[in-house]
Design a protein around this nucleic acid. Structure first.
Lengths: 156, 156
DNA sequence: AAAATTAGTTATATATTATACCTAATCAGC
DNA sequence: GCTGATTAGGTATAATATATAACTAATTTT
């Protein structure tokens, strides 16, 4: 065979990977939600990293900021975080000077949470990164698709 | 002492929990995806429990079933599972007689995975539960909303 | 034939999430 | 006013999930 070029270049690496049939599993909402959430989180985690935040800590700062004076139970519960697991997060916030536990005026058991000035500033910076991240997502999915998504999910 | 009884009254039932302002965080795709995925998983986890399966193991069975003869690396990678973490899963499948590692005809390093008869039967049963779960989800969201979701996410 | 790569594996580290229980404070019911 | 039940925050710990490093045997590359 005079003309024997055997596609040597991709013999090993590229072509060995025949795509699998994922049709059966990709029909499931739960699977799609999980994989997509992972994709989106990969990006937002990178966006938050420079600020020393993770998705969970970022969302906590956002919610405390929007609801100053609320208790740990209230904030944690709104975020779906177990109360015991929220303690360490608040400890970290206080250590870093981002939020504080003020005495509640009405209940000496509970704390009135609020962001410090530094916390507010950090959140503002983080918000910039997150907005850029949202922009990237808006491209990755489709402009109106994101809104559909929000609408659907918010309806619960 | 001022007679301040007025505050007491409402605390009995409804009023202790003034809803928090979640508007700021609910505008984020990542947050919405995560919370929704959690919601959906709660239901599918319950659906799979009677079959001794979890979302990850269920999806593995589905993908092996649709792609018999593929290697562990291929299956795991398609599912976004780290190869080391997939080993224990396959061990469990073999212990329970749901799947087997057959020698690959072309590469003695790798295994050709396939479901056993018992695995196929269990998957069929699990699929019934999952279909019921999907029906519940279709109600919870909206009929056409689910399709929109799938379409958006599959586009990636 | 030697060097580099790959599949599966083991061991381990890290992160996340959940559960049981403790104390101080508050509340419910008398 | 007391007393028992409940609640907020906290500690300790367990259970899960996820990631990384390194090893062996087989294969591929050069």
């Amino acid at each position: 065979m005079p003309d024997s070029r055997k596609e040597h270049r991709r013999s090993a690496a590229a072509s060995k990977e025949n795509a699998l049939d994922m049709q059966a599993i990709e029909g499931h909402v739960g699977y799609l939600l999980r994989r997509t959430q992972l994709l989106v989180f990969e990006d937002v985690i990178r966006a938050l990293e420079p600020h020393g935040l993770r998705p969970a800590t970022y969302s906590a700062l956002v919610v405390i900021d929007a609801n100053p004076g609320r208790s740990q139970r209230e904030i944690a519960s709104a975020l779906g975080i177990q109360r015991p697991n929220f303690v360490a997060m608040m400890d970290e916030f206080e250590t870093r000077g981002l939020a504080e536990r003020l005495p509640s005026p009405t209940d000496r058991r509970s704390h009135a949470l609020k962001l410090t000035e530094r916390g507010t500033a950090l959140l503002a910076e983080a918000n910039k990164s997150v907005r850029a991240h949202e922009k990237r997502m808006a491209q990755k999915f489709t402009p109106e698709g994101i809104n559909t998504l929000k609408a659907i999910l918010r309806g619960k």
